[in-house]
Design a protein around this nucleic acid. Structure first.
Lengths: 210, 210, 210, 210
DNA sequence: AATGAATGAGCCTTCATTCAT
DNA sequence: CATGAATGAAGGCTCATTCAT
């Protein structure tokens, strides 16, 4: 459904991997503007013709890269939050924030570049991360005893967007801080604060705890 | 340097304005890819030569547009929050969130396009909005009676990033929602929740306030 | 409706002419395969960018060239047959055949090349020559005293196709013969023979002159 | 060189046939532009490597196809005109025209495509049809009692070119008309008219027969 | 022999920028 | 100063052909 042919030989697979890796490197190190098909092929040590043997066009290559990037991040998060459901809320959220930040440490520059290319390339692939995160979060919020939100789906989306905004802006403007535990703590505060407040009734009802 | 040649300078001013306006229109309506210098000059009703008379290159034009866009948003926020300091916290935050969302309603598509072009232009111009917002927010948090944060600057940055993330993602994926008051309320909950929690001691002392 | 901008300066006109001339030369001397946009621009002594300033794409350039080529041929024919209506049939046809052959002497190689490109480029332009010729011929046949055809339009088309076939094949396979008067005489015999026969009743009625 | 390795040669033959058939299909259905070597090999169900095993290059493949196409048309004509020599002139010509048109019904699209590719392949192959036709026609004209031409060879060439021009133009611009008997009748009129006239003296003595 | 991955020259086209008028 | 014609590097992509497996 994507790509031109299913690689059936080992050599093909290697070429495809080299192309994706080259694309990721160029995007991460030099930005979207430098990711020309010629540059990608050159960096991959492959002829331009080979690129088009496996990807119908530049966008398909980037889409595939996006898919893999998102998959890697999701896998990282999934692995890091196993057993989280049995934890008390504060611990769970803390663990989740750590996992999210860690996922963004996989390849922050690539993440930035892909986000910038978003509308030029469908975008569904890269948005998928937040979509999946929001779905999971909503389910978790629903399931968790002691959290009673009016609209868990909506709250999940909001939180995912907020956390994502913080992480990505941090990555762009102060990348070293992704290794600072304080970031994770602050994010947990952000989420837990919102949950406590939204649960209590939110702004509309004044916030007096009624 | 002024006075005698006013009429000519007036014409120059008009040309510059036309170019900036044309750039804004094209970016907002057709996206970054369509904003070629020739297209901009054409839309501005000016020759391509004139464009280069007033801007050394394409990036300078976009940088100037970024500066103006940020200035307009800042002015809007500033106007909307006059007197906010005398309000109780909840009201103040609510008002501030409304002002921020409103500022993004000025020209959301342009805002998106500029964010995408960010690296082409250094980025300082467009990031300035969040910088100023964070500075103001920090000052306000410091000033406000009843809010006692360990590190108001850091909290301000976090909140600005979170709120910015939500607004921009919303603009991209569900633009109609910027006119929904619920968005402002949710953002206020997010901020107020964090403040309540951070003030109470944050994660480190987590669990007592529950 | 064609081309990118109307040339308004003398320099532009010169560029356009150079491009069309270069295209004609390459098509005539090296054939359609050699007529790449780069080759055309180079031969015209003009940058590739200039080509695209005046023609939206390669096909538009060739279409314009076709139009001019056909116009030149038509003008040649028109000039050569003035007063033909007052001649007796044999003389008139003889004169017409001479004019047609002469028209193909204008640029036989270009004519061949354009015919070969026919379906790739609309084709209406180059077919226009035979269309116009057939229309005129039909009118002439109708008008001429002593010629009474059942369907002058159809006969005109047939004759034009036949004559065109002979001329073009001759040009391709024995180009020197276009300067041989015998060719014109043979074509006249072909046409006059058909007219005599078709008038008399044609095959269907046996041809006995009834 | 034969015998022992029959099976292998049979397989080879099948591959060659598949390639030629694939080429013919693509040329006829999608035109010359679509007939890339890769597309041909794919349609033939054969690897691109095998194509080059049997044909030194693309042009050789097309040349061979041309040869076969012409052979098929010649065979069709030959079969259709057996016994034509004993017929009276009108009947003979009528039969011949029918055979020629019928021959073009074998694969008109392929015929068009090959004519367009003509120069890529020398052209001898595809021109062979008219050459053979002219040779046969000249012999027939010479043989036929009651036809006395000054230069039968030349007349034959002219007639073949004229008829060919009509048929090919018709195929290109009004393909459905190849099934119309009127076309054959008109062609017969064209030929018979010319013969009657040329025999009578042609243009040089023109006007007496009127 | 057959396969199909790989090659790379070359095509068409865009667009930021320059400069003669 | 304004104009807009001209420039040409660069990009995306195709396809005939080669060659290791």
């Amino acid at each position: 459904m994507e790509g031109r042919r299913r690689p059936i030989q080992a050599r093909s697979q290697a070429t495809v991997e080299a192309l994706l890796e080259a694309t990721a490197q160029i995007l991460a190190r030099e930005g979207p503007a430098a990711a020309s098909t010629n540059a990608i092929a050159a960096r991959a040590g492959v002829s331009i013709g080979s690129l088009y043997q496996y990807f119908p066009d530049r966008d398909a290559l980037i889409a595939e890269l996006s898919r893999r990037h998102v998959a890697a991040m999701q896998a990282a998060v999934t692995a890091a939050i196993s057993g989280v459901e049995d934890q008390p809320l504060e611990v769970a959220i803390r663990q989740l924030m750590g996992a999210l930040v860690a996922a963004h440490r996989i390849d922050p520059r690539l993440d930035q570049a892909l986000h910038r290319l978003l509308p030029l390339v469908g975008g569904a692939e890269i948005d998928a991360f937040e979509d999946v995160a929001a779905t999971h979060a909503a389910a978790a919020l629903r399931r968790h005893p002691g959290v009673a939100l009016a609209d868990p789906e909506r709250s999940a989306v909001l939180l995912v967007q907020a956390v994502g905004g913080v992480i990505r802006t941090t990555l762009r403007r102060a990348p070293e801080r992704v290794h600072d535990v304080a970031l994770e703590l602050e994010l947990a505060d952000l989420v837990l604060g919102f949950l406590a407040r939204a649960e209590g009734g939110g702004w509309a009802r004044g916030g007096e705890g009624e």
